[in-house]
Amino acid sequence: MGSRNRTDEIDVSQLDERLEREVEKAGVKNCCKILLSDPSELRKLGNFTEDDIELLKRLASSTVLHSEFVTANETTSVYAARWKRISLDCPVINTLLGGGIPSRGITELYGSSGAGKTQICLQLAITVQYPEEHGGLASGCVYICTEDRFPTKRLQQLLPLFPRNRIFDPKKLEKAADRIFVDHIPDVESLNECLSKRLPVLLRNHKIGLIILDSIAALFRSDYTNRQMVQRAKDLRTVGSLLHKLSSTNNMAVVCVNQVTDSLDTNQTLPALGLVWANMVTTKLQVKIANPNGRQFLVVSSPDVPTGSCGYQITQGGIEGL
């Protein structure tokens, strides 16, 4: 059992020579990408017939859904590559998160204004570029702004200070700013167009390990009247589905910044946008100002990490846990 070779990619040796060449040329080996892509999308990538696409989907299915049982120990290696994490280069917060931000599903980061949400996002935009052995994905970042201009000045302040403790050669981050792709989105329609059309084109030409949407709330709180709540729910599900598909197909992390609202029933501060969006989120993280001189970072819910919290501060060099 332990010697079986398991992978996220199809075994091209099982294909005939022509189809193997087409797959290699198109770079379509990832099982999730094959299974989640429409036939029309696959035909755009390579010279595939309908029979070719059916064969590729069957092969991807058999690779992902094995016919035999696996042991509990084997699942660790089987899913290790699919559940990578992005370090924040902060030991305290990394420990709380089980290593960092997960690369699967949607991670929601919510909190009040001034709590440090954008600071954390900028830090992740840098650390996702770290080598994998140092907690990164050796990949770039897509940073989508919906409220304010991208904080270029703050990014330039942070870049010379990473990696912290010089855990690897800083020269590897010399062009980090060139691997952060920024887009400013004014409305929901533009966001859908970005996620469904422009972003897939970017992903074919650049290795991206993280999408940051700062913030999801800005668009869905301002673009709708009280009479349009049904349409808003549909649009939220569409955006959530697109983000989940991008994460699963490309094995990348998705971080969505959210605003907060006060609950009159529980007297608690809750993430905005209600149950529709809450049900689309995989991991919930909260940052809050606990008192004039202190802040708290909380894991509210996660599929594989216990709830917990730690203090943190915002320094010249970014977020640091206490």
Rank of each mutant, 00 (worst) to 15 (best):
V78C: 00
Q123L: 02
I126T: 13
I101D: 02
S77N: 12
S112K: 14
R82V: 01
E74A: 11
A115F: 05
A138V: 00
G136C: 04
Q123T: 10
H134W: 10
Y110G: 04
D148Y: 08
K84D: 01
T107H: 11
S113E: 13
G116F: 08
I144H: 13
T75C: 05
I126E: 12
I120E: 01
F69Q: 09
T118D: 02
N73D: 04
G111I: 11
D89F: 01
G100A: 06
P91T: 12
T71P: 00
H134P: 01
C145N: 14
I101V: 15
V70W: 01
I106K: 11
G105T: 10
S113D: 03
T75S: 08
I106E: 07
E108T: 07
Y79H: 12
I86P: 04
I120C: 12
Q119D: 03
C90M: 01
L124E: 04
Y130P: 05
N94K: 07
G111K: 11
D89P: 03
W83F: 14
I120M: 15
T76C: 01
I106R: 11
Q123K: 05
G135H: 07
V92S: 03
G100L: 08
E74R: 08
R104C: 07
G116N: 08
T75M: 13
A125V: 02
T118I: 08
V128F: 02
R104G: 03
A81Q: 12
E108G: 07
C141H: 10
I106Y: 06
Y110C: 15
A81K: 13
A125K: 07
T95P: 00
G111R: 11
E74D: 09
G116M: 11
A80P: 00
F69T: 13
V142P: 11
T71G: 06
V92L: 01
L137I: 09
K84Q: 15
E147F: 06
R85Q: 05
L124C: 08
E108A: 14
P131Y: 02
L122Q: 12
G136A: 05
N73P: 00
E132P: 03
S139K: 14
T75Y: 01
V128G: 02
I144R: 14
A138P: 00
L97R: 08
R82C: 00
R82L: 06
G98H: 12
G98K: 11
G140L: 11
C145K: 12
P102R: 10
V128S: 05
Q123P: 03
E133K: 14
G140Q: 12
G98M: 11
G114M: 06
I106T: 10
P131R: 05
D89K: 04
Y110Q: 08
C145V: 12
A125Q: 04
G135C: 10
L88P: 04
P131E: 06
L122K: 11
A72R: 01
L124R: 09
G100M: 04
A115G: 15
A72L: 06
Y110T: 06
V128T: 14
C121R: 08
N94P: 05
